[in-house]
Amino acid sequence: MNAPVIALEHLTKRYGSFEALSDLTLHIEKGCVYGLLGPNGAGKTTTFKCMLGLARPTSGTATFEGAPLVPAAFERIAYLPERSALYGWMTGAQHLELSRRYFRSFDVARASELLAMFSLDPRKRAGSLSKGQQTALALVLAFATRPDILILDEPASGLDPVHQRSVLDLIIEAAAGGATVLFSSHQITQVERAADHIAILKQGRLILSGEVDELKSDEKVVEAIFDYDVPELNGLASDARVRRIERMGHMLRTFVRTDSAGVIRDLEAMQPKALQTHDLNLEDIFLNAVGERK
């Protein structure tokens, strides 16, 4: 197992009596694309701020490649904040110049490519750009330094579907090049497409984390379709192997913890018209974890 590039140990952040982040421990390995999910107010942005020193953790530590964060490390770390931190009165070109002056690794040609990718006019003032264009400009700044570690808070926020896809491609491309990416998003399909690991936060607590493929295969969904209304389940709902059952008209969806083959046999005995088994999708995992499923 590789040493973690980012290690958060028992990170806690309190604002007065409100605990925004509670005892978060997370290890992110090199080359990972780590998706941070959670409802609004779950603590995602607080996590980013604490790990980057933008907010002081109440307790706990954040280390990068085993060492506490020092300013020089930002030469290799790019951060995209959730809320635009651009200077409204400065043009895109001036923002690029600002980055160029601070980052030795700033790649002017790459910045031009990215500006073209997001159809941005660098002569325009940041304040005159739409929210999506501001996000795009911030992404240009983040990716133009070719960082080893990317921390992106809602990187597709406000972007149109075409550019949302471009962002995912950039993330995947960066990871393929060896970069480590930690990003948050409300759009689960984006996370599902790009992330190989996820962590789910709820009310400041980590409630689930792991490799996406493993989490998906941890549970099976067995869908049975009947010609008639779903029959009596003969105790299947309270079966220890089954976590939850959903009835939708003639369809029965059974979320199976263990022994899916046994559950399938039981369902086959009910003589459904069709029976199929598949892994959970990320939306199921997320909704199960945060307990929002109706």
């Binding site: 980057l52 020193g53 933008l54 300013p71 020089a72 490390a73 930002f74 030469e75 770390i77 790019a78 951060y79 904040p81 809320r83 635009s84 931190a85 651009l86 200077y87 601070y102 980052f103």
Partner: peptide, 11 residues
């Protein structure tokens, strides 16, 4: 509103 940009520079 600019600290996220100012404080993530390598200085």
């Amino acid at each position: 509103g600019h600290l996220e940009l100012a404080w993530t520079k390598p200085i």
